[in-house]
Structure formats: structure tokens, C-alpha cells
Amino acid sequence: MRIAGYLRASSRAPLSQVAKTSLATVLAWLVSTVVMGEPLPIFAAIAALLVVQPSVNQSISRGIERSIGVILGVLLASAAAAIFAAGSWIVLAVVVAALLLGWVLRLSPSSATQIPISAMLMLSIGAATPNYAFERVLETMIGAAVAMTVNVTIAPPVLLVPAHVAVSRLLRECAATLEHLARSLREPQDAASLEELLVHARSLRSLESAASAAIATGEESLTLNPRRAAHRRVLERESQLLGRGRVLARRILGMSRAFRDHYDANLHNEPTVSEIARELSRASHDLVLLANENDPPPATTPRGKRGTAGSVTAAIVSEDGNPASTPIDDDLVPALTAPLMIPRPHPQHWVLIGSLMEDMRRVREEITGEADG
């Protein structure tokens, strides 16, 4: 079972990618046969298989890399064959020289690997085949060109949905952590509960990284994509939300850490702390509204009904499933009030209260958009 786990990927490519790769391979084979009269254009098919990538930009890059690797490998092998006599040691020496050449030129792994492969084929097969070098280069370039053309013209992928899902998940988990912190401020906490809150807040880092990677993948899918104009604005919106979510995640982690480090058993009796907890619940509510801005409304949701899956209510309930102690009057209306004003913090808790207030100010700015202005 463990061996099978190493061999299998966590996710598989879309079926459309498999269909495009198959089509590109068949077309490269047919075009090479017609243009070059080659009955078995293996290298054109190999180039097509390797060049079709998930994005247009990657496909073009891979085509250029493979062509450069083939040309350098053929030139290196031709020079070695012209200078030295035939022999097995020449093949090994050229392979080492090809690897060093790729290292010196700082080529990508794809190009650096292609150089020794082409050189070995040139010295082993090309020595007995006239015009092998020229035919191999031309055949490879035909396969790469066909593959790039297929990937550009037939439904080039636009990977925006994973970016939207990742950013929305980050914002919703930030909201859930804010509500978790609000509950912790209202009730006495033991050491295990404090650590659980901090672990929850630290998990936002991995969600932030996943959202950043999804945004980068989305940008990659739009680079050189003929459909990029229709989707660029959507990705820019997700990138803007990610920037706000990144700030929120770091502020929430700081609040959770400060609460853990400066916790006092009587903290929940402090009136100012109760007000901060109320504002945290309001911030959680509004953050879910922000995450839901780009989500289409459920088609089966009756007008005015609340508490459906994915609604704001789900983010502001207590751990036992009961409503939070500071319910929001309207789940669809922003709930944040003006920033709290504390003229004289409690002398025993002033460090924690001041830290929470400063972080709450930045959280409020990010949720309302005031930080962008």
C-alpha cells in the first residue's frame, strides 16, 4: 500500500489535458511523416508528449527548452565525433561534458537533461545515419510547434476556481479563529484551551501559503493565454483579497499569542475585555460577508431564510452549537461599529488590552477596506 501511495499522485490531471496531449502527439506524428517522409517520427511524438503542459506559458517554455537542449546536444556530439575516433568512452565523456555545459549555462532541468540525451542518441544512432543531426532537430521542433499550437488553440486552461476557493477558505478560517478568540475572552480558559486557540491561529499560515500558491498558479495559467483579458480582473480581485487575508492572518495570530502569553484567570470579568470580545464577533461576522461577496447565492435558498450551509450564522456559533452570546441582529448587514475607545485600561491587564486594541484596529481596517484607502 505504501509503494502504491508513492506511485500515485494526490490529484490527477483533467481529462481535457489527456485529450490535448493525445491529439498533439498524433498530429506531430502525422505532420512529421508528411514533411520529412519519416515512417517512425519518434522524436516528434516525444516532443509533443513533453511540451503539452497545464498552461500556455509552461507549454511554450517547455518547447523552447527542449529545442535548445536538442540543438546543444547535437552540436556537442557532432564536435566530439569530428575530433575523436568512435568509442564507448567518447559517449560517456560527452555525457559528462553535456551535464557540465548545462550547469555552466544555468539551464533549466528540462534543457540540461535533454543535452546529454540528444548527444547519446547522436553518437549511437547518428553515426550510422546520414543527416541524422539535422533530421532530429527538425523533427523535435515540429513536435514542439504542433504541441504549442494545440495547447494555445484548444481550450487553454484558466485556473481561477482553485484560487477563489483557497482565498475564500483563508478568509473564513480567519473569521472562525476570530470567533474562537472571542469565546475564549468571555470564558475562563485552561492551559489546553489556550494552546488549542494558538494552534488554530497558526494553521492560518498554511492556508495563506496555499492561497498564495493558488494565485500564482492562476497567474501562470493566464500568462500568454488568449482568454486572459476576460479573466484578469477576477484574478486581480482574488489577489487583493489575499493581501487583506494575509494581514488578517498575521494580526489574528498575534492576538492569539498575546492572549495566551498574558492570560489571567480574572480576565473574562474585565468589562473592556467583554467589549473587545463583542467586536471580535462582529469582525468575524463581517469577514464572512467579505468572503461571500463573490460567491453566487444558493439557487434553492428561499428569500429571507437564514442559517443555510455556508451562511454567516455558521461562523458565529459556539462550540456546542448554540448561538454566540453576542448575536448579530441581521446576518446580511455589516456589524462592525466604530473603534472602541478605552480612556484608562485596567492596570493589571493594560498590556494585553492595548495589544488587542491595536490589532483590532488593523483587523477592522482590512475588513472595511479602510487600509486600502
Rank of each mutant, 00 (worst) to 15 (best):
R8Y: 05
R8M: 07
P41I: 00
T25S: 15
L15W: 15
V26I: 15
R8A: 05
V31I: 15
V35H: 02
S22V: 13
A24Y: 11
L15N: 03
A24K: 11
A13R: 15
L27Y: 11
L30S: 09
L7S: 06
L49P: 00
T21M: 12
Q17E: 14
L30F: 13
L30D: 05
K20E: 09
S16K: 08
L15F: 15
S32R: 08
L49E: 03
T25W: 00
V34R: 12
R8G: 05
A9E: 14
F43R: 00
Q17T: 13
S16T: 15
A44E: 00
S32Q: 05
A45D: 01
R8E: 08
V26R: 07
T25D: 00
E38R: 03
F43P: 02
R12Y: 11
T25F: 03
L27F: 13
A48K: 01
S10C: 02
S11R: 15
P39Y: 06
L27G: 10
L49R: 01
R8W: 10
W29I: 10
A19S: 09
R8S: 12
V31E: 07
T25A: 15
M36N: 02
P39N: 02
P14I: 01
A13F: 07
L23T: 13
T21S: 14
L7V: 13
L23H: 11
M36A: 09
K20P: 13
I42A: 09
V18R: 06
